[in-house]
Design a protein around this nucleic acid. Structure first.
Lengths: 225, 225
DNA sequence: TTTCTTATTTATCGCACGATAAATGTCTGG
DNA sequence: CCAGACATTTATCGTGCGATAAATAAGAAA
């Protein structure tokens, strides 16, 4: 049937060729790529990405010179966009106790990243190139863990003015890593009840508070000024 | 040069065709697959596996009917083999304090799994199919975390005879997950000093001891019998 | 040595992928 | 309404992959 063009395999007429602004089209492609790569990893084919975006595969190469550059666009979309500026405000509000502050922050933060798309893309990316993991490590350490150590110091009245030491970061890293791992675990065996995440965050902070209080007590008993 | 056969690209004569016992050959193939898949993921090609094993690619299909079955053999080799029976003995030796017991166990355990091959393969496998992760989850919970909770209960004199509850497992999971995450982090930014791992384990156990002791105190003050 | 088994190699198929070139059709400015 | 710009599609190339069939040769048994 040589005259029958632009019909879907179902027999329904295919959507007519729609011209879209380059910005919107690029946006649509990245969205489709995020979905596919989160599910199949970065070995998902450009043809499937194109299908998800409702276009043909070669058109993709008008917007991205290579598959690698598309992957970088996915990185930027998912990872760079993931830090909400309002979180900084929560962490710095000294009118609120440290524990409540971080409880509030971690509730919002885990809500954002404990999602299949974020977690799976993050793991795929970390396995592909170590740079992504190193970048995430830096963000967590500077934006979350160091503030936590500093604010807790002040609360305990031992703001020695020193910089945060690597040793001081170990305990926060342990708990942050534990929460991350909880997110991964939850994702595989189906999302747990909503209250469980809050309980997990609560326990993590409880442990940190107990640990730091205990350490402060040890120091003053060993070194009575 | 039609008569020149079996020569390496370098010009050196290729190793002569060696007949090997099926067991040894299979073993060699799995070893090569472990190495390649740990580095490139399970999309590493069967041709590269064969090259690593020093054979041609079609021979691989005499030992494994498909690539998928080779992957399963890799699973079995790396994950099933990874639990040492002597670890159970360490965990059950009540002559030693709980904390020392688990310190010793985690030192050996992390030594075994904090290695690129294990960690990368585990991540690749978890992303491929959720079954692997579910299986690992089960092993950790039954073999490590439940024993930890039980033994700690006894040590605190509150062996209520109840089964270990999901709520009781949250704290150990948090710390175990934190250690796992530490292993991942260490692997990316180069291995840390040997002492650091021990320090991390020590802190994790310290936190658990403090937390459980604190909870026990709360319970007895709220519910004085 | 000769024969038989089977481990191993050579040759090849079909397919899906990333990427490119050329043809086609849609929107916009005059 | 017409013409140019360019978004989009069709057609296609080269490559690497998983897998199969047939040819070859190494070692064991007689």
């Amino acid at each position: 049937m040589p005259t029958q063009k632009r019909t879907h395999p179902t027999g329904a007429p295919a959507p007519p060729r729609r011209r879209m602004s380059p910005e919107d089209r690029k946006e649509a492609i990245v969205s489709a790529a995020v979905e596919l790569f989160a599910e199949s990893g970065f070995d998902g084919s450009t043809r499937d990405v194109a299908r998800g975006a409702g276009i043909t595969q070669p058109l993709l190469y008008r917007y991205f010179p290579s598959k690698e550059s598309l992957i970088e666009a996915v990185y930027a979309r998912v990872f760079l966009k993931s830090w909400e500026p309002e979180w900084d405000e929560i962490l710095q509000d000294r009118a609120v106790p440290v524990r409540d502050r971080f409880q509030q922050f971690y509730t919002a933060y885990t809500e954002a990243i404990f999602q299949p798309v974020w977690m799976r893309l993050w793991h795929f990316a970390s396995l592909r190139d170590a740079e992504v993991y190193g970048w995430y490590r830096e963000v967590v350490q500077e934006q979350i863990l160091k503030p936590l150590v500093r604010e807790r110091r002040i609360e305990l009245g031992r703001n020695s003015g020193f910089q945060v030491t690597p040793a001081e970061l170990e305990a926060p890293w342990l708990l942050h890593g534990g929460l991350l791992n909880y997110g991964l675990r939850q994702q595989v065996s189906g999302p747990a009840a909503p209250g469980d995440r809050a309980a997990m965050i609560d326990q993590a902070l409880e442990m940190y508070m107990l640990f730091t209080a205990s350490q402060a007590a040890d120091d003053t008993s060993e070194d009575p000024s």
